Amino acid sequence: MISEHFRDEETSENCLILNPRIVDCFGDVGWTGITKTLRLKLKGKPLTQWLYSFYSSHAKSFPIKVETIKILCGSEVSELKTFKQKLKKALLELSYVTDWHCEIDCTNKVVVKKVVKKNESI
């Protein structure tokens, strides 16, 4: 799968060169890139990290019930009210780090709208 690995001396970034035959299997939209820098900003915030990973895998997100997010993320918080409070905080943190618009709407659904800046991919 990986043909070559090196470290860019200017940027200090690790670079991978993939086998072209494996790249053809995925195309431009068959994989999800998660920014390490953003992920590190969320260290110690497991729900926010989960939300970032989850929504990073969506080209376009759609509203999802709070209850569904609770199940999908595997939360062990028993009361939905308590989970919703934690979720609101996590969505605020996610908005701050990613510049995405994240909220719980009046129908009790999580809405995430990605803001993509010029020269930046999702």
Rank of each mutant, 00 (worst) to 15 (best):
M1D: 07
I2C: 04
I2E: 07
E4N: 14
H5K: 13
F6H: 08
R7G: 00
T11L: 00
T11E: 00
S12E: 14
E13F: 05
E13W: 02
I17H: 01
I17E: 10
I17T: 12
L18H: 06
N19I: 09
P20F: 05
I22V: 15
V23G: 01
D24G: 12
C25G: 14
G27A: 06
D28Y: 09
D28H: 10
D28S: 13
G30M: 05
W31T: 08
I34E: 10
T35P: 00
K36C: 05
T37W: 05
T37V: 11
L38D: 05
L38F: 10
R39L: 15
R39V: 02
R39C: 05
K41N: 13
L42K: 04
L42N: 02
K43V: 06
K45L: 11
K45H: 08
L47R: 10
Q49G: 06
Q49D: 10
L51S: 03
L51K: 07
L51G: 06
L51Y: 03
L51F: 03
Y52H: 04
Y52K: 01
Y52R: 00
Y52I: 01
S53L: 10
F54T: 09
Y55F: 15
Y55N: 03
S56Q: 05
S56Y: 01
S57G: 12
S57L: 01
A59T: 13
K60I: 14
S61D: 09
S61G: 12
F62A: 11
F62T: 14
P63N: 02
P63D: 07
P63L: 05
I64S: 02
K65M: 11
K65C: 04
T68Y: 04
I69D: 03
K70W: 08
I71T: 13
I71K: 13
L72W: 14
C73I: 02
E76R: 14
V77H: 00
V77P: 00
S78W: 07
K81L: 06
K81E: 15
T82M: 05
F83W: 06
K84S: 13
Q85Y: 11
K86A: 13
K86T: 07
A90W: 04
A90L: 09
A90K: 07
L91V: 01
L91D: 02
E93V: 11
Y96D: 15
V97G: 04
T98R: 03
D99H: 14
W100A: 08
H101N: 13
C102D: 04
I104S: 06
C106Q: 13
N108I: 01
N108F: 08
N108A: 11
K109F: 02
K109Y: 03
K109N: 15
K109V: 00
K109M: 11
V111S: 05
V112I: 15
V112F: 09
V112Y: 09
V112S: 02
K113E: 15
K114M: 07
K117Y: 11
K118W: 08
N119F: 15
N119G: 02
E120N: 12
E120F: 11
I122P: 02
I122D: 05
